[in-house]
């Protein structure tokens, strides 16, 4: 009997279908339907008898759940195992299920922080900051970059899994994955720090003090020269006095005082408070609704 091999076309077909992994996500066996759907081109190629095909389909409808992208190296390994089995190697059902279950846990632990909590917030924030100014480049940049990264990852890690076969499972606990996760969490925390500073906006409006400034500390609007000379004089004084020189009274708001400590101090305090509340098991939705309520009340009493 000639050896059956999965061609590159077969593997690409599996890779394409693998994108629909979560389509039939269910509370019973989670991603099992999508996994089986992705395996179909390989099963068709490897097994010709009806009994073998039915057994393979059932084998791949077992419980499965991981991050949808890092599932790619797993399916690569399973393709290699199925190929060996079809060619007569003694690969048991339990071995295949064992590889799937053994890899899905640790890999999901890498996929979540890397994709959902590092790459997506960074690309999303980049696109969103452009989009808020009304630029179409923002959404396009986000969409294109994300999908290039995603598709390249899906294909190359699936090929990697396929080429190393079962031996990859041994490397999982090794240093590389840990290192990737560590780099992602450092980068992620750094960027989140920046985002908190830039995009969480709180401003307290109460006035702390109103001071009448000494002569010379403000622009004396009544005694400026007439015409364009006056504008020039005013601008010159403005550039040396700063914004406080525009009026006789210097108004200090609570916000101004806080910003002198560190700009964005209130934002970071709010974020840390949210961290604490989330850790106590309070639902994010409840916190979001509460923040809107605080905003409305704050506005009503003129505090924010």
């Amino acid at each position: 009997m000639a050896e059956v091999k999965l061609s590159q076309k077969d593997r690409m077909s599996v890779c394409w279908r693998h994108q629909f992994l979560q389509g039939s996500w269910n509370y019973e066996r989670m991603q099992n339907g999508g996994w089986c759907y992705a395996m179909i081109p390989a099963i068709k190629k490897l097994y010709s008898s009806k009994e073998d095909q039915a057994a393979a389909l059932k084998r791949h409808l077992e419980f499965y759940n991981t991050h949808p992208y890092v599932s790619a190296p797993i399916i690569g390994v399973v393709l290699a195992l199925e190929e060996e089995r079809a060619n007569g190697a003694p690969v048991e059902d339990t071995a295949i299920q064992g590889v799937k279950v053994g890899m899905m846990g640790p890999l999901a632990g890498v996929g979540d922080p890397v994709f959902w909590f590092t790459v997506r917030p960074i690309l999303g924030a980049l696109g969103a900051s452009m989009a808020m100014g009304g630029s179409i480049v923002g959404p396009i940049l986000f969409f294109v970059l994300w999908n290039i990264i995603r598709m390249a990852f899906l294909w190359y890690t699936q090929e990697f899994g396929y080429s190393v076969g079962a031996s990859i499972a041994k490397d999982l606990s090794g240093g590389l994955l840990g290192k990737i996760t560590e780099i992602a969490s450092i980068l992620g925390m750094f960027i989140i720090g920046a985002l908190v500073q830039r995009w969480v906006s709180i401003s307290f409006t109460p006035v702390v003090s109103v001071v009448t400034q000494a002569e010379g500390a403000y622009i004396d609007w009544a005694n400026l020269p007439a015409g364009s000379e006056g504008i020039k004089a005013a601008l010159e004084q403005y550039s040396s006095l700063g914004a406080a020189g525009l009026n006789v009274d210097k108004v200090t708001t609570l916000q101004g005082n806080l910003d002198q400590l560190i700009p964005g101090l209130a934002a970071v305090a709010l974020t840390l408070l949210c961290c604490k509340l989330l850790k106590k098991g309070i639902s994010p939705i409840a916190i979001i609704l509460a923040l809107f309520a605080v905003g409305i009340v704050g506005r009503l009493i003129g505090f924010m």
Binding site: G188, I202, A267, C275, L278, P284, F292, G295, I296, V297
Partner: peptide, 22 residues
Amino acid sequence: GMAVGGGMVAAVGYAMVINMMA
């Protein structure tokens, strides 16, 4: 008030990320 609230709710999303990675 909703605009003020909208400025603050981003903190919740960031807090979710922080709790995941910190």
